[in-house]
Design a protein around this nucleic acid. Structure first.
Length: 580
RNA sequence: GGGGACGUAGCUUAGCUGGCUUAAAGCGCUGCCCUGUCACGGCAGAGAUCGAGGGUUCGAAUCCCUUCGUCCCCGCCA
């Protein structure tokens, strides 16, 4: 009887059986008439086939082998690369589809020029190492659906062709043929639809949703990406954090050898900025920022004195463990880096003893101050102190960047660690210098911290108002962002007024949402998790392109299909569009 | 829009302070040899207008300018 197997399914139990195997030829070895091949299935598993004298096939041909499973002869059974103890002695090898000469070796595609990989993505994806990423992605999505279904979430598809609401990122626009001169936009996120679903009473919604943003690309940013979008009614932050933590815990269970402690630690935005100079702090290592203002304020170093005297200025720094042996050239590199980040300079001190510093500017600091500095940072001889003096926000930002830069350079960030944390209490607004007005930091439907709103709104101190927005951070990457929303019509109007959106404009953009809110909107909130980013980090990959089947390159072009591409005049005419 | 890196056989790279290069190596490819190999081994061979264009020079893969392509970062990403 004929039985069909994939390579990975065959074991010693199959010895004696006649099987048909289909797959791709991984390698062929010819030993003077005795020919062996490794046949590869879709899991990247290979099976050794002893194929007699048949040689009219080669690497990456798609073949069908019929033969008998049998034990390997003594001395050849302990092999690493193929199923060790058995082999298939073929009676017939049929080439189902011959492979053309290869542009690169499939097994080594990860070492190949990425442009070529993407151009021949189908071959790149034959590489088991690359294929594994998509299998993991599938597994993660199944886990998400299982966990959320069990928790009574319902997955709802929202439109891909939708309304342009030009805020935030640029929209991808789609011209309408039926309504010439009018455009759909591809969704930047299902944000408004999921809030409307709350109004409809689906109080637990999720969607594994494609989102589109027409902005410049990065290793962790593609024009189309996937997010796990969620929204819940009648929730408090803790409810949502719990669901997300449970989901991630289950996801990490799929990855052997990893465990996850919940609940995740929480930091406020202010804390994150003060301690790490970032709203997405990498907590895998210390090197926290310390403000040193008062003790160096007593120094005779004029630059520091002036900054502090100016008001709003601070002196703060970090301690680079073991950085004391830094060369003059590398110091210059750090100074240049700091300046590129906006600092006017960088002060550095090599720690020479438990109480003494070595630096071109050390002479301006009395021995007491030097000892205090060493003490403050808990520095050891051989460490390097890096200080920035400027207005507080800029100082923190530069030190945050410097902290990451120096840690990467010194290779002190541990690998194989997954460090999740919540960052809460983001500011509600940020000041737009160009437009001379306040903008929403997150989006205009984000609920303010109630106490802050009451306290600072009347006095117009909008910058001090915290919001109920939160981010989830993994190893220094923002992997999720969400908020408790506004469900009160009057409050929503006040927010619009604050960001300079009059009733008419608000109605034109979000009228459908505001209208929906008139009919009994429940308190609600939600979050969106970047699936691509999470996968890339969990799999230890540098780019989300590795976890996307058919990604775009840095110029937002698909090297395989050549998209985007010009269209015919006829198509344009039908759409009523003229190209300049 | 700005800063940086890279571009040399099908692939990965070396050479690049100008001439010892008739551009080198590994992998892959082709042919021959080998009956237990699995990163097989041995022998032989094909394969490169050094991304493109221009310039400097007696002489350019190498220096200069322009241009194209890819990647990383800043800006941008509510």
């Amino acid at each position: 009887m004929l039985r069909t197997h994939t390579c990975g399914e065959l074991t010693e139990k199959n010895i004696g059986q006649t099987v048909t195997l289909c797959g791709w030829v991984d390698t062929v070895r010819d030993h003077g008439g005795l020919v062996f091949m490794d046949l590869r299935d879709r899991y990247g598993k290979t099976q050794l086939v002893r194929s007699g004298a048949v040689t009219d096939y080669k690497s990456e041909d798609c073949v069908q082998v019929t033969g008998t499973v049998r034990a390997r002869p003594k001395g050849t059974e302990n092999l690493k690369l193929v199923t060790g103890k058995i082999e298939v002695a073929s009676d017939a090898v049929k080439v189902l589809s011959a492979g053309a000469p290869l542009p690169f070796e499939v097994q080594k595609s990860r070492q190949t020029n990425e442009d070529l990989r993407l151009q021949y993505r189908y071959l790149d994806l034959r590489n088991p190492d690359v294929q594994k990423n998509l299998f993991t992605r599938h597994r993660v999505c199944q886990t998400i659906r299982r966990v959320l279904d069990k928790r009574d979430f319902i997955e709802v598809e929202t439109p891909i062709l939708t309304k342009s609401t030009p805020e935030g990122a640029r929209d991808y626009l789609v011209p309408s043929r039926v309504n010439q001169g009018e455009f759909f936009a591809l969704p930047q996120s299902p944000q408004l639809f999921k809030q409307i679903l709350m109004v409809s009473g689906f109080d637990r919604y999720f969607q594994i949703a494609k989102c589109f943003r027409d902005e410049d690309l990065r290793a962790d940013r593609q024009p189309e990406f996937t997010q796990l979008d969620m929204e819940m009614s009648f929730l408090e932050e803790d409810d949502l954090f719990g669901v997300v933590e449970e989901t991630l815990k289950e996801i990490l269970k799929d990855t052997p050898g990893l465990s996850l402690k919940t609940p995740f630690p929480r930091l406020t935005y202010q804390e994150a900025m003060n301690r790490f100079g970032s709203d997405k702090p990498d907590l895998r290592f210390g090197m926290e920022i310390k403000e040193v203002g008062t003790m160096v304020g007593k120094s005779e170093f004029k630059i520091f004195e002036d900054v502090i005297a100016a008001g709003g200025g601070v002196v703060a720094g970090i301690c680079l463990s073991g950085g004391g042996d830094i060369s003059r050239k590398d110091i210059d590199g750090l100074i240049e880096f700091s300046k590129a980040e906006g600092a006017s300079g960088l002060a550095y001190f090599k720690v020479t003893s438990a109480s003494a510093l070595d630096s071109p500017i050390a002479k301006f600091f009395p021995a007491v101050s030097q000892a205090e500095l060493v003490n403050l940072f808990g520095a050891k001889p051989g460490d390097l102190l890096l200080l920035i003096a400027d207005q507080k926000p800029k100082t923190l930002k530069v030190l945050g960047a410097l902290r990451l830069h120096a840690a990467k350079w010194k290779n002190i960030i541990p690998g194989g660690v997954f460090n999740f944390s919540w960052v809460t209490d983001f500011p509600l607004f940020k000041y737009n210098e160009e437009e001379k007005r306040w903008d929403s930091e997150h989006h205009p439907f984000t609920a303010p911290n109630e106490a802050d709103w009451k306290k600072f709104k009347p006095s117009g101190e909008f910058g001090k108002i915290r919001s109920r927005a939160y981010d989830l951070v993994l190893n220094g990457s923002e992997i999720a962002s969400g908020s408790v929303r506004i469900h009160d019509e009057a409050l929503q109007k006040e927010i619009f007024e604050t960001i300079g959106l009059n009733a008419k404009e608000a109605a034109a953009r979000f009228g459908f949402l505001l209208k929906a809110f008139e009919f009994g909107a429940p308190p609600h909130g939600g979050i969106a998790l970047g699936i691509d980013r999470i996968l890339a980090i969990l799999l230890g990959l540098d780019s989300i392109r590795e976890v996307i089947a058919f990604p775009k390159n840095q110029k937002a072009v698909c090297p395989m299909t050549g998209a985007p591409s010009p269209v015919s005049d006829r198509q344009l005419k039908e759409l009523g569009i003229k190209i300049r």
